[in-house]
């Protein structure tokens, strides 16, 4: 691990201002992904700003009937919150489908959204990766590469990595909004749908956050009811990343919302696909994954997404 200097920030505003001021600085919250990457020298911050003491660790009710989830709320605390379990159960289901008990006790709401891809070529520093070293090339797109886990849609000729979060898929189907503070001390809100950028020619850029800008909260809108479920298909029964995951909210009249994980650089969802829900899983997935560009190794994900959603709709 490269050497770095360290400070604890007392407030989100102070943290954001410092992050913009100190070149090469990074926030550290739970650290469960950042430290992993720092050990491999994939992340090489020269200064860490510890944001655990910034007072963002509570979940409060909003005037609109929703919840304001502090950026430092641990994944366990969020999954266990009685209000979330009762009124936004798809979020609890998504959270407990991810990682392990130990990691969920430490990982934070904001950090979960900002975790990096688990593409094996991003992790292997002996391989070219446009996300790690812009312009180096993409080993995942070379002949014979292992792309079983990688993306089928929203990808580009520069990068086919997926966003690994389960929580983000639950938040996407719930139409969550991210609140940030800028280095100038201003608050801004960003719908989660617009938060993660697609790789295009610049896969090193993953979100719309500006330098130094810090997530302070995630806002859930008022409960939408319906039957809520999260199904994750993976290569082992627990503690593995999704091949495909499906978050579903289905209303008694057959309408609802769908978001997919494990297929794209961000939680994958569209209003056009949601409108197809009364017509069944095939119609939804045909719309949602229209234009998909899978590799030979991961083309199965399209069929798997359709069959997973079909199974979930039968359970209703």
């Amino acid at each position: 691990m490269r050497a770095f200097t360290y400070e604890k920030a007392a407030s989100p505003q102070a943290a954001a201002a410092r992050a913009a001021e100190v070149e090469g600085a990074t926030f550290i919250a739970g650290g469960t992904n950042l430290l992993d990457l720092m050990k491999l020298e994939i992340e090489t911050p020269v200064h860490l700003i510890d944001v655990n003491g910034t007072g963002l660790d509570t979940i409060t009710e909003t005037a609109e009937g929703g919840l304001r989830i502090g950026a430092m709320v641990r994944n366990t605390a969020l999954a266990a919150d009685a209000r979330v379990r009762r009124d936004w159960p798809v979020l609890t289901r998504a959270l407990v489908a991810g990682a392990s008990g130990q990691l969920r006790n430490k990982a934070t709401t904001a950090g979960n959204l900002l975790q990096r891809t688990r593409c094996p070529y991003f992790y292997d520093t002996a391989q070219p990766c446009n996300k790690r070293s812009p312009g180096a090339g993409c080993a995942a797109l070379t002949e014979g590469a292992f792309s079983r886990q990688l993306g089928v849609i929203g990808t580009s000729d520069a990068c086919i990595a997926t966003h690994p979060s389960d929580m983000a898929v639950g938040l996407r189907v719930l139409d969550a909004v991210i609140e940030t503070v800028t280095p100038a001390g201003l608050t801004r809100t960003i719908p989660l749908a617009d938060f993660h950028t697609l790789p295009g020619a610049t896969p090193e850029r993953e979100t719309v956050l500006m330098p130094g800008e810090m997530i302070t909260a995630v806002i859930l809108p008022a409960p939408v009811g319906g039957r809520q479920a999260y199904h994750k298909v993976r290569d082992r029964a627990s503690y593995a990343f999704a091949l495909v995951s499906v978050a579903l909210i289905r209303q008694p009249d057959g309408t609802g919302r769908v978001a997919l994980g494990g297929v794209a650089p961000r939680p994958w969802s569209s209003a056009e696909a949601d409108a197809e829900l009364p017509n069944g899983a095939r119609a939804v997935i045909a719309t949602l994954l229209s234009g998909a560009r899978p590799t030979e190794e991961n083309a199965f994900k399209i069929t798997l997404a359709e069959r997973t959603l079909a199974a979930m709709l039968q359970e209703a």
Partner: peptide, 19 residues
């Protein structure tokens, strides 16, 4: 490396002592 910190179990390999 599982330890408890303030009562909760974590992976102690993925946390910094200074924190």
């Amino acid at each position: 490396c599982t330890c408890t910190v303030n009562g909760a179990r974590i992976n102690s390999c993925l946390s910094l002592a200074v924190m």
